[in-house]
Amino acid sequence: MTLFQDLIDRLTGYRRLTLTETQRMLVLRNGVFDAILGAGKHRLPRKDVLTELHDLENLFFVSSYERALMQNRPELAATHLTEFRAGPDEVLVLLRDEVPVRVLNPEARALVWKAAGPWKVEHHALTETMAVPKATAQRLVRAGLRLNLTQVEVADGHTGLLTVDGVFVDQLNPGAHAFWKVGRKVEVKQIDLRQRTHEVTGQEILTKDRVTIRVNLSADYRVVDPIKAVGAVKDFDQSLHRALQLAFRKTLGAMTLDRLLAEKVTVDTEAADRVRTQMAGIGIEVGEIALKDVILPGEMREILTAVVAAEKQAEANVIRRREETNATRSLLNTAKVMAENPVMLRLKELEALETIAGKVERLAVHNGTEGLMSDLVKLRD
């Protein structure tokens, strides 16, 4: 029977084909849309017929005949296809069996095979921040559609300043954030809100007495108004650096070296107040500011070392003379007491004798102990 049918088809100019449940065929007769064939056996003329085979595993209808089919045979297209079109201010998420399969940007469209469904669509209005709901972002990432998102993670202790097309729109808390990637430029600048230390090292300053010194400064600070800090200046770290340089240069440049070394703590206070006032205007809170080191030129260090050594030597001489004077005065007082009190003199003689006796094995005293301190005392081994 099959051979007989094949013979008849060849004689009459027809051919037979079989489509599976996952196949569809677009048929054009004499260049005009005729049908979209589904699963089963079909008999088609061999001449003046064009066919285009589609697999339903490719969920979306993609064909060079797409526009012509929708315009010339909309009823035929509506039988087999569903069209989704996003508005100018929305994003569509297409779902098959509740799983996202595609994201349509504003004014984008897609044709899907009805038989490949069931289909569902979610409409997401574009907000000023272009933010994607957290649950939606997680579903898109799990479905492998992360390329449709701009993902940003704001670290703990930071804040994120969100700009869209160069315009600030929101301040973000720490955590993960996602934004629609729809042709608009979305940027997030992270600002550290934690306490930090800024160092100014090797700053050269000319003092009032024309001595060139180098100083090292440090300042503790934190950002209290990130929007103002970013909007008021290009780089608030550099602004703090320059403020420290200028404040200490102005303060130290009006002082002599001796005064600077003697009033270091006061210098810190005067310059620090100036820096704090200036930085508060751009949203920066400055804490402790310290003049850590004052580094002198080599020749000046040698001179100061010699001066300090001379001062210390002079102080030592004064102390030595004062102690000698005190010792002499003490001896004089002792002599006066002995001259006026024979008993005290006798006690001193006995103390001297005791000291000597403790250092020798034998002690001979002639003429008794009378006049011990003035007569000869013979010591023998």
Rank of each mutant, 00 (worst) to 15 (best):
G287T: 02
H42P: 10
E52L: 07
E21A: 11
F179E: 01
S218Y: 07
L161V: 07
A137N: 04
R67F: 04
R102Q: 14
H158N: 14
V265E: 14
R321G: 00
N317G: 01
T256D: 10
A155D: 15
T325V: 12
R210Y: 03
A155G: 05
E311I: 03
V307D: 06
R102Y: 06
A178M: 02
V343H: 09
R29Y: 15
L69V: 02
V49K: 05
L111D: 04
E128W: 00
R214N: 04
P342E: 09
G175D: 10
N367S: 10
V211D: 05
R214V: 02
E187I: 07
V141Q: 13
D170C: 03
I227Q: 07
V215N: 02
V91A: 05
F60D: 05
T127V: 06
T325E: 06
A316P: 01
V121P: 01
D89F: 06
V365E: 05
T159Q: 11
M255P: 00
R210A: 10
I319N: 09
V360M: 14
R210E: 03
V62K: 15
V265W: 00
Q171K: 12
R67T: 12
N173D: 13
E122D: 12
I8M: 09
N341C: 03
A352G: 13
Q245A: 09
N173R: 15
V32Y: 05
T20P: 00
A176E: 15
K234F: 08
L363S: 04
Q151E: 15
E299K: 12
I356M: 12
L7T: 12
V188F: 10
M255R: 13
F84M: 11
D192S: 02
K134E: 14
R322M: 11
E57A: 14
R380F: 13
A290D: 09
V294T: 09
E90Q: 14
R380Y: 12
Q138H: 12
H124A: 03
D237W: 04
V169F: 10
R85I: 13
A155S: 13
R184W: 02
V377N: 08
A309T: 08
R242V: 10
N326Y: 14
N367R: 07
V101Y: 06
E204M: 08
N216M: 01
T79G: 09
N367F: 01
T197P: 01
T212A: 11
M344H: 07
N341L: 00
G157S: 05
A272E: 15
L95P: 05
A39N: 04
V186R: 01
K336C: 06
L332A: 12
G31V: 08
M70I: 07
P174C: 07
E270M: 06
E354S: 11
N333V: 03
A316L: 12
T269N: 14
D34N: 15
V164E: 05
V233A: 08
L363T: 02
K185I: 10
I36G: 02
Y65K: 14
G298K: 11
Q195W: 13
V154D: 03
E351C: 03
N72F: 01
V112Y: 05
R102H: 11
V360H: 15
L17K: 05
A108F: 04
L53Q: 09
T212M: 11
K134Q: 13
T251D: 04
A219K: 03
A115D: 12
H42T: 04
R184M: 08
V365Y: 10
N341V: 07
Q238P: 01
L291W: 03
T251Y: 00
